[in-house]
Design a protein around this nucleic acid. Sequence first.
RNA 1: GCGCCUAUAGCUCAGCAGGAUAGAGCAACGGAUUUCUAAUCCGUCGGUCGCAGGUUCAAAUCCUGCUAGGCGCGCCA
Length: 546
Amino acid sequence: MKIDNLEKIIQDVIQLIYPGISKIPDVLLVPSPEGFGDFSTNVPFDLASMLHKSPVSIAEEILKHLNFPYFSSISVAKPGYLNFSFALSVYRDFLQELEEKGEKYFYKERNGMKVQIEFVSANPTGPLHVGNGRGGIIGDVLGNLLKVEGFDVIKEYYVNDAGSKMNLFAKSIAYYYMKKLGKNPEPVEEAYRGAYIEDIATEILNDYGDSLLNGEGRPLIDEIQKIGKEKMMYRVKESLEKFGVAFDSWFYESSLYSSGEVDKITEIFKKSGYAYEKDDALWFQSTLFGDDKDRVLVRGTGEPTYTLVDAAYHKNKWDRGFKKVIDIWGADHFGHITPMKALIQGMGLPEDFLDIIIYQIVHLFENGKEVMMSKHSGTFVTLEELVNEVGRDAARFFFLLKSSDTHLNFDIDLAKRESIDNPVYYVQYTYARLKSILWKGEEKGIRYRGVDEADLSLLESSDERALLNHFMYLEKELERVARKHSVHRIPFITIELCKKINTFYQNYNILSSEEYVQPRLSLVYNALNVLSFLMNLMEIEKKERM
RNA sequence: GCGCCUAUAGCUCAGCAGGAUAGAGCAACGGAUUUCUAAUCCGUCGGUCGCAGGUUCAAAUCCUGCUAGGCGCGCCA
């Protein structure tokens, strides 16, 4: 028995009592405040205005008709709430299923809908910085969650390996390459300056000697761009691996040129009637779709803009069969939302095809001062440095813990200092504690025999009941998190669960509680199921011992 | 100037499909351990939910107007 089913039952009863109501409001069962039973609904309030009756009288009317064995008690509270205490059979059914399926309990049936999540997608012109880590964890965990919710999810990294930034990157490397070969290259304007640029130049020199010099000019730059990109992507992938973010797919911007898709999309826009020529450029009439100005698709020079290529990319996503794509962008890309959504419509794709999650900027602080970061100047803290500093699990947890709408102030000193009492350790510790109960039980010859042999009626304390209710409510909560893409709720939910587990742990010595052993072990056993599921969702390491 | 994000306890932040006394962690103070992991637990202290209006039986949550901070407004990506 799930909460959903109980909600449905209540809703059906309301339909029976008030057949005249055209649209019955959704019955939502939410955890009750302490002392008001297990779950509550405020449906009587919604009905009150429709029926022109007081919420309390409606609640009482509903109460009269709710003769179901699922509720051990139902009561009406002051302004008009309906409070429910669940019968033990509800928990028993639930635990039976949870024990049988384990973590799979939370996985919904596949719904056949293909969803693509595109994130990080940093230009391969430098190492990933801490901001990329934030986008990375949001996409990674959202992808995991959507898989749980039954979607076919692809996590994709869009490699912006075409365009002027890439060219500048190559020139920046070429400068050092030539210099090391005793040439006297012209300094590059606006060059990338990080130490990695010179490192890559050195590597190229070691790998290829002066052989690239033969055809100076374009071919040299082209060659260096190709090699530099590979070397950079190697580093990017390495950083992501250390951070624990894995992609299913790496999509290269350059492939859109070589496949002819960029040209094709240009034709599509020309035929669409939404494009026009002005000042030698091709413009997209995005103002028709709510933009405040039209956008250039093809420059006067004949080169496509990023805007056009991104349109081609999203068309490609659609052609691959995705029914929903979720792009995760840093706040500095905010301005691209309206044009992008306009492009989607301009190409005749459904408006709701694309969701965009914007995460606010990450500010780094060290020694009480903000660290100014810029890829161009080469002064920034890389994701890899951060992971090395605070550890993979702590870094993931820390980034995940804040709503994407909130600016994230990352105090490096605090992160280092907190690494010892970081909430992630609390969660891991809780897991290890539960594990140890089972081990110690084995040693003593006490083994959990399954919920069928546990007398759940002995679980009468509020600590124990709170755990059961938390288990039951998780599924509903995750649905909401998935719908709203608010993955930062997951660590909070996990911490709340751990808090309840630890209170329970502290208040009862489970292994020496005699007739209570089996029912209490059912809580331990299933808490492990639930906690393990949540940690896997976030991909936080489960330590058996700490 | 326009658009978006943010403003909740000393600090870092949850809560915002409107609902019961506004929550957590850290910090401060006081307790709990012959016991399954004290990396724990319990308690105390601490809040005009940025300001002012409005809608509602009910507003931290919705609407309007302000204020402060951030981000964005390229034939860059």
